[in-house]
Design a protein around this nucleic acid. Structure first.
Lengths: 158, 158
DNA sequence: TATCAATACTTGACATGTCAACTATTGTTG
DNA sequence: CAACAATAGTTGACATGTCAAGTATTGATA
């Protein structure tokens, strides 16, 4: 009887290795997600909102021109249909600024505000520590393997 | 520049291997979750509801006595505060039956109904295929490694 | 045995997620 | 250049998730 099966106190064995991998994956991600949520929550934002802010900061050179809404949706770590409303809330908190694109008036361009940047900076260190904490069960070499295996999982689905 | 960084079209590199592992993990799990959701959705249930049904079926020998609500919460793959309402909806669909425990009237015991069992049976094959599909990027040996690495990640957090 | 803490939920209030339908604007094609 | 499709997003309706506070019941203690 495997460890995961014990964790979930199930009496049936997994139907296949693939099944065990899927369940383990969802369970592990949930754990890590919760850690991150606990980190950003006290600052009044959700994990998704945090992700949007990081996208806007991380956009790099193109950040000056602003990032269109759907471009943000595309870059989200987790697929998120409700980006508009995410941005509404971030704008209400003055962490993000939006403006219609003059060249293509269908687009809305987004920027992170100085207030948003300050919030991210405040979270940066804690996030770094949190990631280390989440992955403390793996040594450097195993982390690299883990990353590689997940890329192999995602590759056929793009 | 790593593959994941390209996937997310970020111009900033990851701050650490742990960071890349965390982001990859959440992203990969989201992908797999979506596949599963797409599978069970057409049957009118959510992934969490599906999980509850599988818990009730998988409870094994103790299933005769029924499973208390909080026991279900404990066994969920993903931590879920709203088990009561999950059960409400499942009961409304007649996939689950509930009853007060006579020995401890605080507890509510739950069983899967024949209708619930039939629904699970209908989904079993498709779920098996879906798990294979999700993990098709990994060969058998890599799957075992992957499972082991995730257990190592979770172990320090129990 | 009355009181108090702990357990096992349930409920309310509110934020978030999700899907489908809708609007505005821009490209494309006969 | 008019008509139509495609793009980029918004909005509405509803389900789900989440947190805090409330209720019923049981166990432990003075």
């Amino acid at each position: 009887m495997g460890r995961l099966q014990r964790e979930l106190r199930q009496n049936r064995p997994f139907q296949s290795t693939a099944h065990e991998a899927v369940v383990g994956l969802i369970r592990t991600a949930d754990m890590v997600r919760r850690q991150m949520t606990a980190l950003v929550g006290p600052q009044g934002i959700t994990l998704q909102q945090f992700n949007v802010l990081r996208i806007l900061r991380g956009a790099g050179s193109e950040a000056r021109d602003g990032v269109p809404t759907l471009e943000i949706a595309d870059r989200m770590i987790e697929q998120t249909p409700g980006v508009t409303r995410l941005l509404d809330r971030l704008e209400a908190k003055e962490l993000v600024r939006r403006q219609r694109c003059p060249k293509d008036r269908r687009q809305h361009l987004c920027w992170i505000t100085p207030k948003g940047l300050a919030l991210l900076q405040k979270l940066d260190e804690a996030a770094l520590r949190s990631h280390e904490e989440s992955m403390k069960g793996l040594r450097a070499k195993d982390r690299a393997t883990f990353i590689r295996l997940m890329e192999a999982i995602r590759a056929p689905h793009q």
